[in-house]
C-alpha cells in the first residue's frame, strides 16, 4: 500500500472529528469527536512506523520501527486518563445546570 492512502484516510477521519466539534452542541459528543481525532493520529503514526520498517535503517536496529508504536501506546494511556477526568467534569456540569448543552457554559462571558 502507498503511504498516501493512509495519510488521506487519517486526514478525512480527523476533519470529520473537527466538523463534529464545530457542529454539535452536546458536550459528550464533542468529547467523542476528540477521541476520534486522537485515533486518526494513532492510525497515521502506525502507518508511518510500518513505512520506516521498510527503510535500510530498520535492518540495523530492531527497535527502529517499534518506537512509533510505543508512542501510540502512550497516547492511548493519556486518552484513558483524560476520559475519566473529562466525564467526571461533564457529570458535575450536568448536576449543576441539568443539561449537557455547551452553550449554557457562558457564565464567564459577562
Amino acid at each position: 500500500m502507498d503511504i498516501k492512502a493512509y495519510i488521506i484516510l487519517s486526514l478525512v477521519l480527523f476533519t470529520i472529528g473537527i466538523i463534529g466539534v464545530l457542529v454539535r452542541r452536546n458536550a459528550i459528543i464533542i468529547f467523542m469527536c476528540v477521541e476520534l481525532m486522537l485515533n486518526a493520529v494513532n492510525l497515521l503514526l502506525v502507518a508511518f512506523s510500518k513505512m520506516h520498517a521498510l527503510s535500510s535503517a530498520a535492518k540495523a536496529s530492531a527497535n527502529f520501527a517499534s518506537d512509533a508504536q510505543i508512542f501510540v501506546f502512550f497516547i492511548m494511556v493519556v486518552a484513558a486518563a483524560e476520559v475519566s477526568v473529562g466525564l467526571a467534569i461533564i457529570v458535575m456540569m450536568y448536576r449543576n445546570v441539568h443539561t449537557v448543552d455547551v452553550n449554557f457554559l457562558n457564565r464567564l462571558k459577562n
Binding site: M1, D2, I3, K4, Y6, I7, I8, L11, V46, A47, S49, K50, M51, A53, L54, A58, A62, N63, F64, A65, S66, D67, Q69, I70, F73
Partner: peptide, 28 residues
C-alpha cells in the same frame, strides 16, 4: 496538497515483526 506530492513510499503490509508483543515489550 497531499495528493500533489509525488512520494512513492510504500507501507509494509501484513509482514514485519515491529508490531509484535515481544519486540514492543522489549523496547518498552
Amino acid at each position: 496538497a497531499i495528493s500533489k506530492i509525488d512520494v512513492e513510499q510504500l507501507v509494509q503490509i501484513n509482514a514485519g515483526d515491529s508490531g509484535l508483543i515481544k519486540v514492543l515489550g522489549m523496547n518498552l
